[in-house]
Design a protein around this nucleic acid. Structure first.
Lengths: 198, 198
DNA sequence: AATACAAGCGGACCGTGGTCCGTTTAGCCC
DNA sequence: GGGCTAAACGGACCACGGTCCGCTTGTATT
């Protein structure tokens, strides 16, 4: 029986071949999604492109949604970095309201750009992936800086809700509303929410 | 060659057997969804229960999402009737703000009750089914009565966004926030949006 | 190095959504 | 009623997501 070192809980580390396969699979998925679009990528094709059995793919990522989530997180990492540490007004340095409006514009663009990926990733795990949690936290933080009172976590979620990919796709790609108009309406919403109730 | 009567365009009427099968299928689907829950109902089982071939099912309803949409519309008809003509404060007769808040509470409950059905119906047609259009129209109407200025269609969509089933399921069933708290936050949002900017 | 065993592996297999196409039938005209 | 055609029918068939299980391999222990 192997010595049990990890006294404090936590998942045991991945075996080296497992980690290698995980990386191979993510690589293959990133490449395929990039060159064909998310909804043209089958699980079999990813497994084949990674030279790995299908069973391994599902053991590592759980489901198609899980794999797409990993791809999505990878794709949005750069965006998150810009929000956290990039140049103003999106990054720190600008007044909170300007940052919030810049955030909205940027999020709108990103949601639309990754719409297919987001849809593919939005099965079963609810929407609670790292990326979503990050946006809520960020908006909540900005609202706090603006001195908004109330149930900030829920208010942040409410402000973010109209920027959900599924809603934006309906508005822009089905109803053919211009992105500018959608953004203007969102900005209006934000100003109303943040207005001081003096 | 049959006489062409419909000079003005529009889809030709359904053949009698087709209409009968459509009804049979919807009946079967309603019954199965009611007794097993939407995500335990397979297309094969619906076709079998309706004593109809699977091909027919798909010809009539296009896809699983289409069938579930029909079931959903049927299930929500009663709710829509209450909103349009039921007793206040949900129905007409109460002041607009009271109606709007009652609408929110009612919509929150309905979205959660039909969450599985809504999820099953939300493929491919975007969200543009009759039910969704109805809620937007209604909220838009109430906002107008409240004298709210701005891009009312988009503002209505933004106000409705936090009541989307997917978001509510995450908040209530995953994060275990109470319905009361979620509703309070939504009411707060609405009051902020409707506040007069004097 | 030899041993032991958990972890990992891969591909055959299954259920389900969706399509296809040869056959049947409702509706119209004579 | 008989004949014609477009519409409808239905079930065999396919693709894809997901599971299962017997075999392999990495790693820790001695």
């Amino acid at each position: 029986m192997p010595t049990e070192i990890a006294v404090l809980g936590g998942p045991p580390p991945e075996r080296r071949d497992a980690a290698r396969n995980r990386a191979r699979l993510l690589d293959a998925a990133l490449r395929l999604v990039d060159e064909r679009g998310a909804d043209q990528v089958t699980m079999d094709s990813v497994a084949a492109a990674a030279c790995v059995g299908k069973g391994t793919l599902f053991r590592r990522y759980g489901s198609r949604a899980g794999l797409m989530l990993a791809v999505l997180d990878h794709s949005e990492a750069a965006w998150q970095a810009e929000v956290i540490g990039g140049p103003p007004p999106l990054g720190p340095g600008a007044p909170p309201m300007e940052r919030l409006l810049a955030f909205g514009r940027s999020r709108l663009e990103t949601s639309l750009r990754h719409a297919d990926l987001i849809a593919a990733a939005s099965g079963e795990h609810g929407r609670s992936h790292a990326a979503a949690a990050f946006t809520v936290l960020h908006v909540r933080h900005l609202l706090a800086e603006l001195g908004v009172r109330g149930d900030l976590p829920l208010l942040a979620t409410a402000v973010l809700a109209p920027l959900e990919a599924s809603i934006l796709v309906q508005q822009v790609r089905v109803d053919h509303l211009s992105e500018g108009r959608v953004l203007a309406a969102w900005s209006d919403l934000v100003r109303r929410v943040c207005r001081d109730p003096l």
